[in-house]
Structure formats: structure tokens, C-alpha cells
């Protein structure tokens, strides 16, 4: 197999705040290959966005990587000088942020803003920037792109603004696209159109994408592989179809059970008890321990089993295997 486009390897990350050290990520690993869409799912506060920000090298100054590495196309992003990482951003990897209206500059036209990106990273000149911005807008199927390029963000609908953000991210033909909840707050019809566009671009250009979302249906539909995060751990990873058909981590299973779906009554939806643990406090090896219905004695003492390849799970007592003796379970998980 070729080297992955983005390789996050055993990443641990802390934020040093006034109220203590927040252990935001611990031993997080995931890969995105060319042409592949990886979904990062989990509750808010589980470390999805922080992982993406770390990959883009745009972490808050209080954040500090304590272990592990992020490699983009073989080059280390963590520890690299800011100049080198800045070269990657925009040209090699681009990001779509959660709220398109706040991501755009309200007092400049969208055409100018896309032009800026093209002039900075795409080798456009002042003369060609305008035409290329219009071209970029046309690519994301904005009707009447020449007129829309002269519009200010407030003149466009939410869906349009998000398309502008996507146009901006795609303007320099990046190899990796990081989407942080790209369709939250958009209509389902707009969401379907935007996700179809992202998928199409991945297939056509062989672009890799990291899709951060808490909408499990959306992830199941769009992504090739899924990584489930909980409180700064990747607890399960696997092909989207496998993971949703046969979740192995109890957290994944309860997330799926909590999602309203067609044909599911209100009584059939289960809530997940408890909250995410306080990441400032001392934590047990498994951060899901306190909420887990399948916790065993071994969960308090032993470190989590490694994720492994394929459909991997970091749990001593995963679903779909015999929850009999503790040793048998551990063996199974380690195998």
C-alpha cells in the first residue's frame, strides 16, 4: 500500500490553561489515503476539531504536542518550522470551517477573497485573479458566478456561503481537504448537494478528505472509513459499512442507538448516560469507563489494547465477542 496522504501517528496533545492541563488527545492515530474520505465522529469535546487543527498546524498557542507525529505526504508537520507548514496550507491541504459566515470576511466581496487565496498560493496575478475566482465559483455550481463574485457574504444564503468556502478551499486544487462540520446548519437539500460535490471531487481528483461530523447518517453515507472519537481517544475505526453494521466498541453502539432514524420509535432511542469526563483530572486508561455498561475489572488497570489495522477497536470487552472470562476477552481484543 502506498504511504497515506495524512498520517496521524500516536498523537498526544495538551492544552495548558489557567485551570489546569487539559489532555485533549491521547495516542490518536488515523490515516487518510488519496481519494479516500475518512469520517471523524463523536460528541462535541471529543477532540475531532483539535485533531484537524493540529494537522493543519493552526492550533491555539496553548496547545502542545507531547507525543506522536503528524505526517503529510511523508513530511512531518509537527515540529516543522512554521514557514514550511504555511507552504502546505492552501496549496496542499485546505480546510472548510464550520460556520461559513464567520469564516468569510464580511466587508470584502467573495470574489476578492477567493482571488486572495489564488494570488497567495495559486500563482495568479492581480489581472487573472478575478477570472480564476469566477472559475472557482463555477466549479462548485454556483449559478451566475460572475455576478456572485461581486457579492458580499451577507448577500448570499448560508448554502451559498458554504459553497464559496468550498470554492476557496478547492481553488488551488489541494490534495487533502479537511471539512469541519461542513453542513451543520444547512438545509438537507443543500447538505445533499454539498456532500455530493465533495465526494465527486474526491473521486475525480483523487483528493483525500477528512470529514468531521456528529451526524452519523451523513458519515455512513459519505465516508469510506470512519474513526470514532471519545474524550480524546480514537476508540474504533473501520470501513463505514462494517462499523455501522457491526459496531464493536460499546460507545459506537450507543451512539448509533441514540440516533433517530426512519422506523425507530422514540422509545427505541437510547440516550448515552453520563457526560464526557473532565480532561483535566486524572483519568483511567479507558476514558469511557464511567459511562460503559460493559466495563470489566481489567478496564481500570490495564492500558487500552492497540487499535490494530482493519476494523480496530480499543476496548477490553468489545461487542460481538464472548464477554465471558476476562482473559479470553483480552486475548480476542489483542488478536
Amino acid at each position: 500500500m502506498a504511504a497515506p496522504l495524512l498520517d496521524v501517528d500516536g498523537l498526544s496533545l495538551e492544552f495548558r490553561t489557567r485551570s489546569g492541563v487539559v489532555k485533549a488527545l491521547e495516542d490518536v492515530s488515523f490515516q487518510v489515503a488519496k481519494g479516500e474520505i475518512l469520517g471523524l465522529v463523536g460528541e462535541s469535546g471529543s477532540g475531532k476539531s483539535v485533531s484537524a487543527y493540529a494537522a493543519m498546524g493552526i492550533l491555539d498557542a496553548a496547545g502542545c504536542v507531547t507525543a506522536g507525529a503528524i505526517r503529510y505526504d511523508g513530511m512531518a508537520v509537527t515540529g516543522a518550522p512554521e514557514r514550511e507548514v504555511a507552504k502546505l496550507r492552501g496549496r496542499e491541504m485546505a480546510m472548510i470551517f464550520q460556520s461559513p459566515r464567520t469564516a468569510l470576511n464580511p466587508i470584502r466581496t467573495v470574489g476578492d477573497q477567493i482571488g486572495d487565496v489564488l494570488r497567495r498560493h495559486g500563482g495568479a496575478t492581480r489581472q487573472t485573479a478575478r477570472a480564476r475566482a469566477v472559475e472557482a465559483l463555477a466549479q462548485v455550481r454556483i449559478p451566475d458566478p460572475a455576478r456572485r463574485a461581486r457579492a458580499y457574504p451577507f448577500e448570499l444564503s448560508g448554502g451559498m456561503c458554504q459553497r464559496v468556502c468550498i470554492a476557496m478551499a478547492l481553488a488551488c486544487r489541494p490534495k487533502l481537504l479537511i471539512c469541519d462540520e461542513p453542513t451543520t446548519g444547512l438545509d438537507v437539500t443543500t447538505q445533499a448537494a454539498i456532500m455530493a460535490l465533495i465526494v465527486e471531487l474526491c473521486r475525480e481528483r483523487g483528493m483525500g478528505a477528512l470529514l468531521i461530523t456528529h451526524d452519523l447518517h451523513l458519515a455512513a453515507e459519505t465516508c469510506d472509513r470512519i474513526a470514532v472519537m471519545h474524550a480524546g481517544h480514537v476508540v474504533e475505526t473501520g470501513a463505514a459499512a462494517d462499523l455501522f453494521a457491526q459496531p464493536r466498541h460499546p460507545y459506537t453502539a450507543s451512539l448509533i442507538a441514540a440516533t433517530p432514524a426512519a422506523g425507530r420509535t422514540l422509545d427505541a432511542i437510547g440516550a448515552i448516560p453520563g457526560n464526557l469526563p473532565d480532561l483535566r483530572a486524572a483519568l483511567p486508561p479507558c476514558r469511557y469507563r464511567a459511562r460503559c455498561p460493559r466495563a470489566l475489572g481489567v478496564c481500570d488497570a490495564d492500558p487500552l489494547p492497540p487499535l490494530g489495522s482493519g476494523h480496530g477497536v480499543r476496548c477490553h470487552n468489545p461487542l460481538g465477542c464472548n464477554p465471558m472470562g476476562e482473559e479470553a476477552t483480552v486475548d480476542h481484543a489483542a488478536a
Partner: peptide, 28 residues
């Protein structure tokens, strides 16, 4: 979050029955 959503939906459903209120539920 989905983990909380289910609880709130159940709460709303129970309140409607207990208090006999009508709902106009706007949603995507």
C-alpha cells in the same frame, strides 16, 4: 449532541402528554 438529543426529545414528548400542550415543532 446525539447523546443528549434523545433525552431532550423524550422529555418534550413526555411534557406534551403531561401538560396537554400543543407543539409547533420547527425543524430541519
Amino acid at each position: 449532541d446525539v447523546s443528549v438529543q434523545a433525552v431532550i426529545l423524550k422529555l418534550l414528548d413526555r411534557l406534551r402528554r403531561e401538560l396537554g400542550m400543543s407543539y409547533l415543532f420547527v425543524s430541519h
